[in-house]
């Protein structure tokens, strides 16, 4: 569908409301990402304060995952600026400096839709590896902290199991522990429950709910509308690479401004 034909799209640039007051921890401005001709992310700006939980909702292919991947530079934006904590980058199509990217990634942890656990390492090794290699922690310290993180996600008993011996829900919780063990300031969740049965997904959501309650700064792409509504501080609605609407969940869910948001919500909520 040609987005120029979508009336909603014409006023995307108007929606750059600073929703968070005071000092923002993450500041992304005018991010654009093209894949060939396709504008996967079309001028998105976002600012997140410490401790905030942001949910990205919207139809499949709207660019929620891509936006998350821009935030830790797994994909390089074609243009725009990004600051996470004290690490800032400007993108203009020239090759990016590795040290800058690294600085941003050190601040962020990512949880993948397909878990991406390392199949040849046990749960505790999955969680400990990057601590040793990146943070320079000793083997003992990394293991102790890994066990603590596994405990936190309720998997202390599975510490020595390999990913293939764990259920999908357990694997995803190991993935969360692996990201948390790096002491990130920002957690990115890329549809962490969409590969799981609803009941198993609930395990993951429970863990995430706790993280949110502990004051973890989080951005999550999700299809779990109820969860987004109750856990996040702010909700962004993405359609065709743009954030067409953003605001407090209550407002977005109960009184959406945009026709496209209403259509999307009525489709997924069945009302």
């Amino acid at each position: 569908m040609d987005k120029r034909m979508d009336p909603v799209h014409t006023d995307t640039r108007a929606i750059e409301v600073e929703h968070s007051s005071g000092h923002s921890f993450v500041q992304a401005e005018h991010l654009v990402k093209r894949f060939g001709e396709h504008r996967a992310i079309d001028d998105v700006s976002l600012s997140i304060a410490k401790g905030e939980v942001i949910s990205l909702i919207g139809p499949s292919g709207a660019g929620k995952s891509t936006l998350l991947r821009l935030l830790n530079v797994l994909e390089t934006p074609d243009s725009g600026t990004l600051r996470v904590g004290d690490a800032a980058m400007t993108f203009d199509g020239t090759p990016v400096k590795r040290a800058r990217v690294l600085a941003i990634r050190r601040h962020t942890g990512m949880v993948f839709q397909s878990f991406n656990l390392f199949p040849h390492l046990s749960a505790v090794q999955n969680v400990a590896l990057a601590q040793m290699r990146v943070l320079g922690r000793s083997k003992d310290e990394a293991r102790t902290r890994a066990l603590a993180q596994l405990e936190r996600v309720g998997l202390a008993a599975k510490a020595d199991a390999y990913p293939s011996q764990c259920s999908g829900g357990q694997q995803q919780r190991i993935g969360i522990a692996r990201a948390l063990a790096m002491d990130p300031d920002l957690m990115l969740f890329d549809e962490p429950t969409s590969g799981l049965d609803p009941e198993v997904g609930a395990e993951i959501l429970a863990v995430m709910r706790e993280l949110a309650a502990d004051g973890t700064t989080m951005v999550m792409a999700t299809h779990e509308m109820e969860f987004a509504r109750h856990v996040s501080h702010w909700t962004c609605v993405m359609v065709e690479g743009a954030v067409i609407e953003r605001g407090a969940p209550a407002q977005v869910f109960d009184a959406p401004e945009h026709e496209r948001t209403r259509r999307f919500l009525s489709a997924v909520l069945g009302r």
Partner: peptide, 10 residues
């Protein structure tokens, strides 16, 4: 790497 992604050495 996939197009556009950045490998970064730690």
């Amino acid at each position: 790497r996939p197009a556009g992604s950045v490998p970064v050495s730690a």
